[in-house]
Design a protein around this nucleic acid. Structure first.
Lengths: 188, 188
DNA sequence: GTCGCTTTTTACCAAATGGTAAACGGCTTC
DNA sequence: GAAGCCGTTTACCATTTGGTAAAAAGCGAC
């Protein structure tokens, strides 16, 4: 819980009473490896904050291959916010890549925060923007070759390298697992 | 101007007085091809809305190559919002790819909108989120081959194909201009 | 331990893409 | 029209990456 509060307080200050209210509305949950937090084709029902573990955003392309679109690690929001807000179906799965501990807000509780805490909308939008921004900043750069993309991945997500199956990293980087294995060998 | 108002009204309703206020705070400008709207290393000073033309987000990688990160066409926001908001230096250029007409808000006017129009923060954050989201949805998918990326680019930006130099499209798609030229030939 | 399953690594060859360089085409200037 | 400039296309070959398949390594169940 304290991780969540610390995360929120980086965007604005809250008084004791407001912090209590946030804490009352958040619920701690555990996700086991490979469980889904939300699913493609369904309307996202909650906002998650990753306290421990890694969530993976993924989808199936038209060839039926599973593509990892993003990794969400500690101290980030796990939510397809645009579809959460608009009550529309998400196009991706959010799946636990490792066992995870999350703090979650139901849609109703999330809205109560807006209604109750003055300035929450502003905090909220900064949080969401930061997430979208970070996601794009950490994404593999399409104009770089596979080796460079892997090296940058290691810089951006040093803690993931030995926790996540190679296939998932490969699809995130846009290469086959064979290529990634070859790259791993070549940089050793 | 009416394009801007129509764009805003898709996110929430505004009354006549509020619309007048927005119109009073926006300023129409023209950018000629290759002029910069904002520059890497500088703090973004304004929010732009593209009425006509195409803006290109780009930067120079560590090899000194110019990489196009995004295209912003009609009815979208042109701004590095995270750095605009945080008053920090942007990492990319926003440059006119074609002659453009924009509506712009200075930082001060943008903030006055928040202070004056109840619910503007919410509109604002939906606008910015939609932009970030669209940008990522339209971005070339790293796991697809170059031909597929070009075909999807044509679907996403049909109006750009004959307006934008091939080199810029190539760097956006993460291929050399030679490869893109070859691809163009092969799909004819 | 052994078996069975999954993940990762290797190997081989085919296909795609990159790098260098030159040719081509369109456009402006003189 | 000729010369020069810029963007695009081609050509050639080197390099990277993909596809298929098999071997090796890791890991849990029994």
């Amino acid at each position: 819980m304290k991780e969540l509060i610390a995360y929120i307080l980086q965007f604005d200050t809250l008084n004791k009473q407001q912090i209590d209210f946030v804490e009352k509305k958040a619920k701690a949950i555990v996700l086991h490896k490979e469980e889904y937090f939300s699913e493609a084709g369904k309307i996202p029902k909650q906002v998650g904050f990753v306290v421990e573990g890694v969530i993976r955003g993924c989808y199936y392309n038209n060839k039926g291959e599973e593509i990892t679109r993003c990794f969400i690690s500690e101290n980030s929001l796990a939510v397809d916010y645009v579809n959460f807000e608009a009550n529309t179906a998400s196009s991706e799965y959010l799946q636990a890549s490792t066992d995870c501990r999350l703090m979650v807000f139901s849609k109703q509780n999330w809205e109560e925060l807006s209604q109750t805490i003055v300035g929450w909308e502003s905090i909220q939008s900064k949080m969401v923007q930061k997430c979208l921004y970070q996601k794009s900043r950490k994404s593999p750069v399409i104009s770089q070759d596979a080796t460079t993309r892997y090296l940058e991945f290691m810089e951006n997500y040093p803690s993931l390298i030995n926790r996540i199956p190679l296939v998932h990293i490969a699809s995130y980087l846009g290469v086959t697992q064979q290529s990634l294995s070859r790259i791993r060998k070549s940089i050793r």
